[in-house]
Amino acid sequence: MGSNSPQPLVSIVTPVYNGAEHLAECIESIFAQTYQNWDYTIINNCSADASAEVARRFAAKDSRIRIHENEKFLRVIPNHNVALRQISPASKYCKFVFADDWIFPECLERMVAVAEEHPSAGIVGAYGLRGRQVMWTGLPYPSDVISGREVCRKLYLENLYVFGTPNSLLFRSALVQSRDPFYNESNLHADSETCCALLKSCDFGFVHQVLTFTRERPGSLTEFTDDMNTLIVGRLHDLVTHGPDHLTREEFEICLDRKLSEYYEFLARSLVQGRDKKFWDYHKRKLNDAGVGFNRTRLARATLAMLCDAALNPKDTVERLLKRGDVRTGSTFVRGLQRNSNTR
């Protein structure tokens, strides 16, 4: 952007549910932005703590802040869709900043600069700090834009996940306004699915700088996603639903076979661990939803291979069996919920 060019408006949204503990820090990070042409909506999801009072205190100081009160409590992903419906019609870009997270002072400035320089970029990401760990690395430096098809191919072929969480992305508002609901409310990993869908028609911008902070706090949703390994379900869903649009037929078949092998290796370990009916009902349902079905023969083969490996390498196998699921790298929407789901 030229020095005399008007700054495009960025609509920021923060969904919050009982997030008073960290909400002030989140809001203060918005005030600290070097980029100042923004409006800000805080979506209070029927909080029972002081979240509303914290939000009102800041709104009284700055007319760019408004508060939206949900009439009833919503689950995480539906609440995020409500949040995105609050963005200004005049905005060119929009961004989540989660109530228990925050963004670095140059976040909006750097992301908007990339989007303005590359009009084809519908989504802009960046490195993020999760606890003390730098996340979402792997794209070549210093390139700040990659085709949507190529970044999705890297996801499927190389397992390179750079979409982060909604907290780490900037979207063009026109893309958000063209999809309602923006996120698939039946998918816990709706953020990666949405990115894969959008990137069929736009490019992916990237800032090679740490611009966001994601707090790590154990919570009930995290425990469920880790226990059930919903990430492997989400990755399979993305591949089956969107892979054919980014891959050749041969590449897709190879990726699908590899993903199913990974899935059934996980299920074989789960069989030996004696997982309960709830676990098996969940995974059978998700495999059927993905259109690949539950294959008992493949599970038997995977279990036999695991037991043979155990006989040959007992120490390594025992260590693996002590872990429930191994597809824990990368990040998805639920990785963005790795603190306490109740803060959204």
Rank of each mutant, 00 (worst) to 15 (best):
M1N: 13
I30Y: 14
F31L: 03
A32F: 04
Q36F: 05
Y40S: 07
I42S: 01
A52M: 02
A52F: 10
E53M: 09
R66L: 08
H68W: 03
N70V: 08
N70C: 11
L74E: 02
R75H: 14
V76K: 10
I87M: 10
S91G: 01
A99L: 12
D100W: 06
D101W: 02
W102D: 04
E109W: 10
E117W: 06
S120D: 11
L129A: 06
G131Y: 07
R132D: 10
T137D: 12
D144S: 00
G148C: 00
G148Y: 02
N159Q: 12
L160G: 05
T165N: 01
N167Y: 11
N167W: 14
S168C: 15
L170S: 15
S173A: 00
V176D: 00
Q177E: 03
D180T: 10
N184A: 07
A190W: 05
D191V: 03
A197C: 07
L198E: 08
S201C: 11
D203H: 00
F206S: 05
F206Y: 15
P218F: 01
L221H: 02
D226C: 14
G234R: 09
G234C: 05
D238K: 06
G243F: 15
L256V: 11
L256R: 06
S261D: 09
Y263H: 15
S270E: 04
D276R: 08
K278H: 14
K278G: 15
K278N: 11
F294V: 09
F294M: 02
R296M: 15
T303G: 08
G325D: 00
D326N: 07
G330S: 04
G330F: 07
V334K: 07
